[in-house]
Amino acid sequence: MSPEKLADAYRLMKTIREFEERMRSEYQQGKLPGFIHIYRNQEAIAVAACLDMTNEDYIASTHRGHGHCIAKGCEIEAMLLELACKEDGLCNGKGGSMHIADMSKGMLGANAIVGGGPPIAAGAALTAKTLGNGAISMAFIGDGASDQGTVAESLNLAVVLQLPMIFMYENNRYAEFTKSPKPDGRIAERAGAFGMPAEVIDGSDFFAMYDACQRAITRGREGGGPTAIEAVCNRYYGHFEGDAQAYRDQDELAQERAVSDPIPRFLADPRAAALTPEKVAEIDAAIMAEIDRGFDVTYAAADPTPDKLYTDVYIQYEGRLR
């Protein structure tokens, strides 16, 4: 991997980490509305998945989508404005954390419906196949969503139509408050049963994830059809911010947190040797400055004006329907 790409990978993982830690702290102070779902310790998955994608490739995200946005290239400031539901946010403040999207980056939306994204990603893959433009489409899917019928339908459609699609399962072993009864690997086994290559990868291992994504992306671009990857990972925080995870064994949680952090593991890997401590410090400083700037802009930004309630509905309703 080139030094530039290594630096990009680190920068993106670290940006997600710092962005969300700051989000948590602001949220806990009551400065941000709605629900937020933190991605900590899963950063290697999004970054490995999106590192070699272009703006013409598509992703459909989940409720835990901030990391996917950043990895796909969404601007930090525009994201923050959206998460704070400001007028100048990516979605004019009308989407917020669970519905944030950036069409210009091929980011087809977080999704507050568990399992809602895969059919949409299949449609984007159908566009790529129909136009023959070599683009690929990826659906991020949690282990909880893996049980939804929409996911099974999308797996099947992707195989039948040989779509350039990747099913990126993030198995953090918890569906909301409930521990997954499925052993690791069962999700990939299911996806494979539909007739596509399916791999189980350690989601904390950036380099292993990157290699697996390369194989899947190349297969998709070359007309080889869909691939499934089950990235096994750990959900560091609760389902949503504010969930204390009282349902988890605290010793097990502490142990998992310690071994599943992808960032030190990435830096300790001999393949990341080109990334010197000086370079890392430089990147870190730039990230913190960008986040600080983003929050400054966000808190000074305007809320949407009341008339925005009515804009961007497909039908302009008048009179008694207002």
């Binding site: 949409i120 984007a124 159908l126 136009l131 929409t150 459609l157």
Partner: peptide, 15 residues
């Protein structure tokens, strides 16, 4: 679900 969802996704991306 896949027919309607994929039609929506395809529409969102240019078809």
């Amino acid at each position: 679900s896949a027919i309607v969802g994929a039609a929506g996704g395809a529409a969102l991306t240019g078809l």
